[in-house]
Amino acid sequence: MGIAIETSGLGKRYGRTWALRDCSLAIPAGHVVGLVGPNGAGKTTLLSLAVGLATPTAGEVRVLGGLPAGSPAALDGVAFMAQDAALYRNLSVADMLRVGRNLNRRWDTARAQGRLAELGIRLDKKVGALSGGQRSQVALTLALAKRPKLLILDEPLAALDPVARHDFMAALMAAVAEEDVSVVFSSHVVAELERVCDYLVVVQGGQVQVAGEVEDLTAGHHVLTGPAEQVDAIAQRFPVVRDRRASAQAHLLIRTGDLSAAPPGWQRHPVGLEELVLAYMREPSASMLPGPARARSEQVAC
């Protein structure tokens, strides 16, 4: 299996603006990866480069254990669902399936039709006449019909109501349970990531700020609550991601896996993924990345 997406020194410039800069990342295969960050952080750029829809200005990006992004071998193994489930609105669902079959070397028509029947989506309906939730399910069906090894989705939840969002994620997770596919998706819905993602990447200002397995990230961070006058002493002992203090009390989000880290008079609390992500997004200067050595060893181990 190995690596799903690997970038080194990756950069993309539009005009005079770097949308993504000096991005080095190794995402192991077999995960459901959440890609988060503020608007304009470079999420869509990173995904487009991994799919091969854009070419890098600097550095390189490889997928599925070393295939150059956008190469024919990579295209066979990667499926992409663009923002707003970009489909031809004037085509019927059946015609959309036909388009998919003709544009891909590997295509499982029976599987696609079976999925749509299960969802109760009629083949003779025009794509434009479907609800937003149905449209996204058709797009997911098309993406899965090519039996990808890596499925990349750009903001799949953005346009969906809560029920459609839940149904979409349920369908996606069922696909992950049934076969051997790595999933990378960008999202603004931070609260819903915790149930779904087991790997997290935070990008900010065109750079990767946090990357790692969710379990490691939550086990490796804690909130300490205690007297404000001792904050500076604590900050010398542990890396502080976020520092919130009032006149008497302070809450510090610190990075350490050490469970005995709480000094006398301080309380230690576990931290959830949402709190962690928001803290990093609010503090652009903090970062948490596996070193290059670790990324390498993971490559060997998988």
Binding site: H166, M169, D198
Partner: peptide, 16 residues
């Protein structure tokens, strides 16, 4: 079954 759970709750199969 794992597949039934994730299809119902929309959670990561690895969690199950």
């Amino acid at each position: 079954r794992v597949k039934d759970i994730v299809a119902g709750l929309a959670i990561n199969p690895n969690t199950v």
